[in-house]
């Protein structure tokens, strides 16, 4: 996949657990795991907005494009 999800890196930087993050952004831990492992096919703007709000970061910190 060309889009890489760096959510785990950002979570490590902010020292937040998966359970805490999923609770704060209002998605299930299963869905967060899907996002973290790169299995997700799409992300809603509302989810991205909440992630950025909780982790205090920009979408570009979480998502990265790679042409490989």
């Amino acid at each position: 996949m060309a889009i890489i999800v760096n959510l785990d890196v950002m979570m490590a930087k902010r020292k937040i657990s998966s359970n805490d993050l999923s609770e704060k952004i209002g998605i299930t831990p299963t869905n967060l795991s899907i996002l973290k492992t790169g299995k997700a096919k799409a992300i809603r703007f509302s989810t991205l907005n909440k992630i950025c709000e909780v982790l205090k970061c920009q979408p570009g910190d979480i998502l990265e494009y790679s042409d490989e």
């Binding site: 869905n31 899907i34 299995k39 997700a40 096919k41 799409a42 992300i43 809603r44 989810t47």
Partner: peptide, 8 residues
């Protein structure tokens, strides 16, 4: 449905 299920 699969695509929708994998939309977070």
């Amino acid at each position: 449905k699969n695509e929708n299920d994998l939309t977070v």
